[in-house]
């Protein structure tokens, strides 16, 4: 589990995160949603330790991130997987080398074992016969799946996904969403997903935090989000014509 207590972050005079308290539960897909510029990515980067919070605490399984020494932080990071918005695959490596990278860095596995594990996970994300391709030779959706495979190949305890299906067609987006949820449940991973895609939220948002103006404006589940009267959330959710129509239909009892 990851706990966040009183997290503040500013850039100059601009306050991005203004006292965030949150809990991300193990074995569930925890989503952070909010409109562009609401501070989602800054929140995630603080949790990952890529940004240093101005104040507040980030606690991984009861242990304060700020109090961990270098070795402990390294150990923690070996148990983290991250799916970046633009995949962030190493462009000097092939698909297979990208997926094997965490195994190579953090395990004593032999090359053949690494290859077997990489092939298993690539098969799992429906990517076969692409092992020797370079990232530039495959599509955006395939890159996302390779990045997901790289993120989970070392069986992490914590998985972070920054807009995992942005720029993908609806079918591929659904495949990615379902994969993340399946892997989360199977390996009991604490998964944190940043998204502003309402389809994703409905599909896999087991716990949802709604971020607005640097604070958590609402929290609940994907079942509760359509029932809430919270104005900030309804503004966000029903900015989509489709969801407005769904709501009207629900209100009419259709």
């Amino acid at each position: 589990m990851i706990e966040v207590k009183g997290l503040h972050k500013s850039f100059g005079d601009e306050t991005i995160l203004d006292g965030i308290d949150a809990k991300f539960i193990r074995g569930k897909t925890n989503m952070i949603i909010g409109s562009s510029g609401s501070g989602k990515s800054v929140f995630l980067k603080n949790m990952l330790g890529l940004f240093k919070p101005d104040s507040g605490e980030i606690i991984y399984d009861g242990e304060l991130l700020s109090e961990m020494d270098g070795d402990r932080q390294k150990e923690l990071r070996e148990n983290m997987g991250m799916l970046f918005q633009h995949s962030a695959l190493f462009d000097s490596m092939t698909v297979e080398e990208n997926v094997m990278f965490p195994l190579r860095m953090f395990t004593k596995m032999r090359r053949r074992e690494r290859q077997e594990r990489a092939n298993d996970i690539l098969e799992r994300v429906n990517l076969v016969n692409l092992n020797t391709k370079m990232p530039s030779e495959i599509s955006g959706g395939q890159q996302k799946r390779v990045a997901l495979a790289r993120a989970v190949v070392n069986k992490p305890k914590f998985l972070f996904c920054d807009e995992p299906n942005s720029g993908l067609d609806p079918k591929t987006a659904t495949i990615i969403d379902n994969l993340i949820q399946e892997l989360t449940h199977e390996a009991d991973i604490t998964t944190v997903i940043i998204s502003h895609d309402m389809n994703s939220v409905l599909e896999i948002g087991e716990t949802i935090l709604f971020l607005k103006d640097g604070i958590i404006a609402w929290e609940g589940t994907n079942k509760e989000i359509f029932k809430t009267e919270n104005e900030a959330v309804t503004d966000f959710v029903y900015s989509s014509e489709l969801f407005r129509k769904v709501r009207i239909a629900q209100n009419k009892g259709l």
Partner: peptide, 17 residues
């Protein structure tokens, strides 16, 4: 620089490298 703008350096940092 390319690794920087495409978040590959962030990917290394997150992995603890």
């Amino acid at each position: 620089g390319s690794m920087n703008v495409t978040e590959q350096i962030d990917a290394l940092k997150v992995m603890g490298i």
